[in-house]
Design a protein around this nucleic acid. Structure first.
Lengths: 335, 335
DNA sequence: TTGAAAGCGGTACCAA
DNA sequence: TTGGTACCGCTTTCAA
């Protein structure tokens, strides 16, 4: 293994000089810098991560806690992950994967062993049990999602309340007087998942404001679950003419089931999705949608973590404004 | 921070004794062990990962290289990941996420810096360009997938050749004389993805053996792509009565499109999928399928990596035999 | 069965 | 602008 001493010897300087060339923490003459860099390349030197972590008390690793739940939309989770990894690399950091099933122990482990410098947590609940653990850790933490009481932790998320409102506004503006929200799985609501509740609230409050009749149903992400919801919805005295779907997994089934029942989208019924844009575009009818900017949120989480590590900023709650893209699935309400 | 010296002092022993209690590398009297463990718990001691890695030249971290391609089935990728992480934890290791877009540099980085002890690589191509890099790394590597020339690297995968054969056998045994393979995206074939070609080969060879007429088509994972494939397939003089689908993303659309065209499954046409069981069960018609044991393969990859790290075993190619589960989507061919 | 101490490969302080 | 070196916390050899 090539060490910093090897490089120093080859370049005719001291190890500390090599270290400073690499870190840029003190000024180096141009000629020295060149000689050192040359030796580094020639020898194929890579600083030993463990030694560096030990000496600097910085591992340059971010821990990312990912959920394993099957009722979450996996592609969206993966987008968070890739957004996080890509941005971490831009800051010369790596990402360590911790699964949520390790619970508080996992957080303690990576923090106390100095495996990771900061922790990013996904799938946050309203009454998030990991908040007290994270605050006790003496390491920066960033939540992707907003608990009811963040206790000073940094949070990033889509402004789901505003997103719910925007969905209602869009349909109401198109003249829909009867709308419905097809939400995530009941399990998601039951465990108080942060985004589900906020979206629901924005949806309901705005519906009330606009005087729109709004049904709300959770939906098990399966054909049977969907059929039950549709049976319920369409049998009502004044069935909804506009559907807001906050459940990525049933978008495809919903469209085929509507087709099967002879309902044209958007002529007979409008469908507005909350999902990543690529998913909205891939459906049989390109769906109008409010974007879930998962990649961007992952990157933003890294940014907030880095700021805290650099001591440049206090933790903050950062909500991204929703963006609604009109495609082919929403239109005026039929008279 | 609590160090091993603090624990040693509290327990009235030397640091080396604490270390040996933890590693189990030499025998310790029961009373000493108890005192040490007690102090560890009382002080909340967690060994510093960097120091440990430096002294032992073992980071207890596995690097996992994940693909970012959108033409792969993301849930399956995620199952590999979770299988890997879970098994790694059982060996007291953590998993560092490296994205494939870093290419060979990423591999060098994690290996040369001793960030990771071993590397697991997903999304392997037949002419896998990372094979020479990995062999040059002087660290164990495990491929999830089998390149044409593994050059002595360890590989784990489903036996896709046998899987292709088994699919044909199942349909032929049911009396189908005209079958078709709806495969992955053309892009997957074009880049020579290892599993796609092997499955195709097993499919075609067995069809020839059984004297079955077998069409094979790649399918862009979208509604349009699927419609094009179905148009082609169903317009043929002797349309297939049995479909083998090696493309998770279009299973849902396929079933709804078949329904739209008035074809009953399995009465008019049999559908046999290659996918994880949960996906097969979640369709509108529970699909007969050959399992993709992604979680198991992830775990197996870890196991092979650990064996190599312990010097217990040479790299090997390990292919899991396919398992076909008959559900409701395959039946006898109509006369 | 246990202890003392020499590293592991960097970082950053103190000098020059 | 650069060099010397103590030290980060743990592992492991050598000795007892």
């Amino acid at each position: 293994m090539v060490t910093i001493a090897d490089v120093a010897r080859a370049a005719g300087v001291s190890p500390s000089t090599v270290s400073y060339v690499l870190s840029g923490k003190r000024s180096i003459s141009e000629s020295t810098r060149r000689r050192v860099h040359h030796s580094i390349r020639k020898l194929g030197y890579h600083p030993n991560a463990g030694a560096r972590a030990l000496a600097s008390s910085r591992s340059n690793v971010l821990a990312l806690v990912v959920p394993l739940r099957t009722d979450l939309n996996v592609p969206v989770v993966m987008q968070f992950v890739t957004g996080t990894v890509a941005e971490a690399r831009r800051y010369d950091h790596d990402v360590l994967l911790v699964t949520a099933d390790e619970g508080a122990d996992g957080l303690h482990r990576v923090a106390a062993s100095s495996l990771a410098d900061a922790i990013i947590v996904m799938d946050v609940e309203a009454a998030e049990p990991r908040v007290p653990v994270l605050t006790s850790l003496a390491r920066p933490a960033v939540l992707i999602g907003v608990p009811d009481d963040p206790q000073g932790l940094a949070c990033v998320d889509l402004d789901f309340t505003a997103a719910g409102a925007e969905c209602v506004t869009h349909l109401a503006d198109l003249g829909h007087r009867d709308i419905a929200l097809i939400g995530p799985s009941p399990a998601v609501y039951e465990r108080g998942t942060s985004y589900a509740g906020r979206f629901l609230r924005g949806f309901q409050e705005t519906a009330a404001d606009r005087g729109v009749d709004a049904a709300t149903l959770a939906c098990v992400p399966s054909y049977d679950g969907l059929r039950a919801v549709l049976d319920d919805l369409l049998a009502r005295p004044r069935p909804a003419t506009g559907l807001v779907v906050h459940n990525e997994a049933i978008l495809g089934p919903l469209l085929s089931e509507l087709a099967r029942r002879g309902r044209l989208v958007p002529e007979d019924i409008s469908v507005l999705a909350v999902c990543p844009p690529d998913l909205a575009e891939a459906q049989s009818v390109p769906l109008s949608s409010v974007d879930i900017p998962a990649t961007e949120l992952g990157a933003l989480a890294v940014e907030l973590a880095m700021r805290q590590l650099d001591g440049l900023a206090e933790p903050e709650v950062r909500l991204l404004p929703p963006r609604l893209t009109v495609r082919s699935s929403t239109g005026p309400a039929v008279a």
